[in-house]
Design a protein around this nucleic acid. Sequence first.
DNA 1: AGATGTACTTAGTATGTGGGAG
DNA 2: CTCCCACATACTAAGTACATCT
Length: 749
Amino acid sequence: MSGDHGERDSQVNSGSRANDTHKHKDKHKEHRRKEHKKDKERDKAKHSNSEHREHSEKKHRDKEKERVKHSDGSVDRHREKQKEKDKEKRREEKVKSSHVEGKPKKEKENGHAREMWNSPSPPAIKSEPEEDNGLYPSPKHNKTLKRERDEEEFEYKPKKIKTENGKKAKKRKQEYEDEEEDIKPKKKTKDKKAGADGKKAKKETEEKWKWWEEERSTDGSKWKFLEHKGPVLAPPYEPLPGHVRFFYDGKLLRLSAPAEEVATFFAKMLDHEYTTKEMFRKNFYKDWRKEMTSEEKSKITDINKCNFTEMSEYFKAQSEARKQMSKDEKLKIKEENERILQEYGFCVMDNHKERIGNFRIEPPGLFRGRGDHPKMGMLKRRIRPEDIIINCSKDSKHPKPPQGTRWKEVRHDNKVTWLVSWTENIQGSIKYIMLNPSSRIKGEKDWQKYETARRLKKCVERLRAQYREDWKSKEMRVRQRAVALYFIDKLALRAGNEKEEGETADTVGCCSLRVEHIKLYPKMDDQEYVVEFDFLGKDSIRYYNKMPVEKRVFKNLQLFLENKQPEDDLFDRLNTSILNKHLQELMDGLTAKVFRTYNASITLQQQLKELTSPDESIPAKILSYNRANRAVAILCNHQRANKSLLSTCTEMYIFALINDLCGVLRMVEVKRKAVQRIEEQLMKLQMQATDREENKQIALGTSKLNYLDPRISVAWVKKWDVPMEKIYNKTQREKFAWAIDMAEEDYEF
DNA sequence: AGATGTACTTAGTATGTGGGAG
DNA sequence: CTCCCACATACTAAGTACATCT
């Protein structure tokens, strides 16, 4: 039990989505608690999204807080906790469940010693600008000289000049891994160009702008120049053809266009489970009424008497028809989409044409919250130009609002990265249009994130020693902080910000865990001090895990639980802001989420080392890679919807077949080549089958995209000569272009 | 010191698509 | 050549973090 965090033990997941089965009401408890709980009912009743859409109403929070102050910090567990959160709601729905157990995964972290420090800022050299797209002005350069740059591109000066050259590249590279290594010409691009002379045509793809070889801005500005065409608005509503009817209480009823539109939103979802949920229907109905004429309002008084089936059938037929369209009709549509993409899908940011992530404004519809969301079914209203804020350079060509309309505002804020924003009416939160992950602005940030995680790697043992020490603190808040941090580190829990009650599904993260989410077992089977976690996390995905902890942690937990009710906070003296403040003091830039990134990446690296066998085939290596990736996904609890075991039989059959073939192959041994080829195919099949099986519940994409330092994968691919496409698809290769370009096979996270 | 607002990352699901099996 | 399925992409909800306000 030294401070090393040797293993990630028994991570067990059951894939069930929260709102399926496990909730029970516990009225009694509810009552009991109510008595001494402050009444913090805020009247959130008023939500008029009907009134002029001009106001997106902000949430009403009039929580009255009442705090009992405790001054000191000794272990005063008798006090009522001060954090006031209303728990009425949760008292109602208790999530109880039976769990399915998965198998424990183990992995250990390795603490590599040697790590050179890398400052997060990119190297000094700028490379040549990208290809010019003809749409926008953009300086063209000849890319051959990557090194020299004209300053014209940026008015801010690169501060760092790359000085070096003499060094032995090989050695150095490692030491300066990310930052400086680009000094040496990338063989890739260089070599490539040789072929370019001919009809290679791919020129443009080959000459991608390498922003990672340029300086980063240091003044806090995100860009110097930004020009774009604005968003693509949702198309206006097209009324249904006359033959599609709506019936109320068995009788035909013609709806006004606004009421009809909202009705179609519901009709389109008729096959979805959502529409059977009381909350969904109730919210929908309430908002729908706001769109009705007064006559409609008086006629339609019960949603259960509404018959949307003709509408529903109509949409199904439409979508069927769409599928049956002829080739060129489809082509036409495709071309039109492409045209829109070309027109609206790109912007110019600092002399480079960059892809925009989401350039379409979200169309109106019914809100689909995840889990047990109190607002499911509410009308998400149509966004008009008057709701939209445009952000661009003052000296750019501003996007034009449609004829006869105007934008809410046009601003020029280069301290932010978004191009367009609007306020959404369900939660009153702001939505943005931002750049694609392949863009410089996203890529730099991503790179930086991994650099922060690597810095954590260098001091993580120190921090672990520290929080272990803090378990003994005489201040309750320090102990809580230390135990929470231990969970975050060891189990990769999310920080757990506080949420507004009643606005969202009841989910938690580490700091917001409640008493009811953990169970303590002094003894369980052959283990001691076992903590069982069972709660709904982000997206209402269930987290279920049993973990043996050290005695001291266990005792602390017992202490935290004393005199508390199930719906009380486990860590009543802690929140994410306190925790992050503390982390900040321990390491610059450190926040709770860095632990997830760090643990995910180090686990991948470590698992790859462990699982890859030098002489296995490429498909087998890929399987090893996916298994390493899977270990991370399990750690992070990334689940996929449970798709029943429909294909078990098929799988069995495949395996049987494979086995037979193996036997045959062994005996035959005819032509080496042929055998090898077949073996490879076989292997591939086998690997894929295995992979598929193992993947039923776990989604690898999320961790690959968000938590795993891509340089680890790139290094692995290069080391074992695995084709990059086997690991990263096109989109991913674009997002991780920086890593693919800069990481060599000896990269160490 | 909490509440509030903003910006940006992380997340699962719905939808589209293309390539292989039948 | 069609159909299906797996994968890719589109979409947008739901988190984290932090600045600023009160």
